[in-house]
């Protein structure tokens, strides 16, 4: 317990940082979690993090909070999950409380909206890059390329929700591996 304390504090601060800089909700947090947890801290390897995002997508609740809890649990058990969630929530509490109090007196401001007009496309670039990084761990052959394209088309044009797509991925993965093992 005692020698775990620096790790828990480390988890808390890491997720505080991630929370403070993720504009635009859960998906915007993925590139930051990947950079901090996989690249910088090396707490989790790059394939496992993709699998964690996959499980989190199919659970109820906020993607961002669930990812924090899941990653925290993987690193340091229940205490880790709590530390990560608290860290992730801290900036929200401070910033939203301040804004809620301020906005009624100040109102909207054109320079603030200009700053956000610059930030939003950068977030699009960040998320696209996260998909690219995750793809490097996930896309191993032409079959996975096809599954990825089907999922993308299903989400964009047919508006299929993440859970049915993930179920589709699981079933096609099991079938493909079964056929491959029979061939060998």
């Amino acid at each position: 317990m005692k020698n775990k304390r620096p790790l828990l504090l480390d988890i808390y601060i890491t997720f505080l940082k991630i929370g403070a800089f993720s504009f635009g909700g859960g998906y915007a947090m993925i590139p930051l979690i990947e950079r901090e947890v996989v690249v910088n801290k090396k707490w989790i390897d790059k394939e496992k993090i993709v699998d964690i995002f996959a499980v989190v997508e199919s659970l109820p609740g906020a993607v961002a909070l669930n990812s924090s809890a899941f990653v925290g649990y993987t690193i340091a058990g229940i205490q880790g999950a709590i530390a990560a969630m608290l860290g992730n929530l801290t900036p929200s509490v401070i910033i939203v409380l301040l804004l809620s109090i301020l906005i009624s007196s100040v109102g909207s401001n054109p320079s603030i909206s200009a700053v956000f007009n610059g930030i939003r496309p950068a977030i699009v670039g960040l998320i696209a890059y996260a998909a690219y990084r995750i793809g490097r761990a996930a896309i191993k052959d032409y079959i996975t390329v096809i599954i990825m394209i089907i999922a993308f088309i299903g989400a964009v044009f047919l508006k299929i929700a993440p859970i049915p797509l993930i179920v589709f991925g699981a079933i096609s993965g099991i079938i493909v591996k079964k056929i491959q093992s029979k061939k060998l």
Binding site: A54, I134, G169, G173, V176, K177
Partner: peptide
């Protein structure tokens, strides 16, 4: 079995995250 399922799921997740980028661009007038 879990690993075979994850082989397919990882590809789907890649597609979904690309979709998230596209969706954000659509929702913000980009």
């Amino acid at each position: 079995k879990i690993q075979s399922a994850l082989y397919g799921i990882r590809a789907v997740i890649t597609g979904i995250i690309f979709f998230a980028a596209v969706k954000l661009a659509l929702e913000n007038g980009i």
